[in-house]
Design a binder for these strands. Structure first.
Lengths: 219, 219
DNA sequence: ATTATTTTTTAGGTTTGTCTAAATTTTAAT
DNA sequence: ATTAAAATTTAGACAAACCTAAAAAATAAT
């Protein structure tokens, strides 16, 4: 199936919103896309005809399985281009979004395959968001404090929710940043603290509070 | 001034056609763009309002100075992307046109500036066509046989008009290909033959016929 | 349980870029 | 110099993607 730039933007925004709310509303999508609710309704009908949307009038909507697949391929393109812009062209990570937003609509699968090769199959973009693979599989992001982050398996830091100077100082001290690889070596259930090993450094212990603020994923 | 994708495609095609004919006709442009003459006329009016076109009804049209500048910036983007696709992503040179056609419309000047840096300021795309510089200056392409290709100045092979096996064999023998740098050392007016020096090889003499088929440019 | 408010949809209109068919102008042919 | 042919433009329509204003449905408030 083939999608226009406009359709792709709607798909991407619906995907983004339904990460948090499952069922998306017309107003929230209009707000996200800086457009009018009536325009959203128009597009919803089109996407429903194209069979990528579950939609019940007045109730809300969500992407179905094939819609999600389309969304993930757009997200993949966006994040690969962001990675390219930062690591190859030397852009600052906070300046690439708008340009990637344009590049993501260039629709050659061969281009994306070769770009991915060229970049050495990055797993996360410069903001720490995971890049879906060719088949639409995307890493799940979890708080480091959550018990089901497996022990002794390498995970990658995706984001840090608390950006206070104290937190940043602590992270710097432990050599933790976005993209840092680490593994959980032990969990102490007494106080929720976690022993981690950051690349080649000696293991260290971080409090539950810190672990709650660190988001990681594994492949 | 800001141009839509469609406008940019018209501008690029007009520029291309007026390289050969100076005054462009409605039919030829319709043919070039695979569209209808009536659609062309519609767009011509728009481009005239935007003051980038000299246009007299029923007579023909051409880009004015600012129109040419716009065209050259599009050509620049196109050819930089083609160069990128071949040299960085490993595409074959004959497979990149369609993709570059999409990428060229991504309109961030900062992106193009940084891409140009990243690629080390290439002067020609993989087909041998010169890349206009940041200010819209583009190398002029001439037959190597023409007297005003200066002597003892480095020029670059842009294209070869005769692709016969015999010609290709000869070119291979003299180590001449698209992108090859060479200089004219002597011209023999008796038969129009030209002595050239290809990079580090010994000087050699090519006939006027061969020289007529080799197109070069210098910066 | 009505009424009021908010949300969503419908109805109808606009712009961009395209089209076909008809009219006009230019060019070519007798 | 007319007439025939070709090129070009105009007129009117259409699809995509948006809009405003009004109607309909769902939600909240009394």
């Amino acid at each position: 199936m083939n999608f226009s730039v406009s359709e792709e933007n709607y798909i991407k925004s619906i995907y983004h919103l339904q990460q948090q709310t499952d069922l998306v509303t017309t107003n929230s999508l209009a707000n996200e896309l800086q457009t009018r609710p009536a325009s959203v309704t128009d597009m919803l009908k089109k996407l429903q005809v194209k069979k990528i949307l579950e939609y019940e009038k007045y109730k809300g909507f969500r992407l179905n399985a094939s819609g999600k697949k389309v969304a993930l391929s757009i997200v993949r393109r966006h994040r690969l281009w962001e990675y390219f812009l930062v690591t190859k062209l030397g852009f600052e990570w906070d300046k690439v979004h708008a340009i990637a937003e344009e590049l993501e609509h260039v629709s050659s699968p061969e281009l994306i395959r070769k770009l991915d090769d060229f970049l050495n199959h990055p797993t996360a973009d410069p903001h720490g968001d995971p890049i879906p693979d060719m088949h639409g599989k995307i890493a799940v992001i979890k708080q480091l404090s959550i018990a089901d982050v497996p022990e002794n398996k390498n995970v990658v830091v995706s984001s840090v929710s608390n950006q206070s100077p104290d937190m940043l100082e602590l992270l710097k001290h432990y050599h933790i940043g976005i993209g840092t690889g680490l593994k959980v070596t032990t969990r102490f259930s007494f106080d929720g603290s976690v022993e981690i090993k950051v690349s080649k450094y000696a293991p260290c212990i971080i409090s539950e509070l810190v672990a709650k603020n660190i988001f990681v994923y594994h492949d």
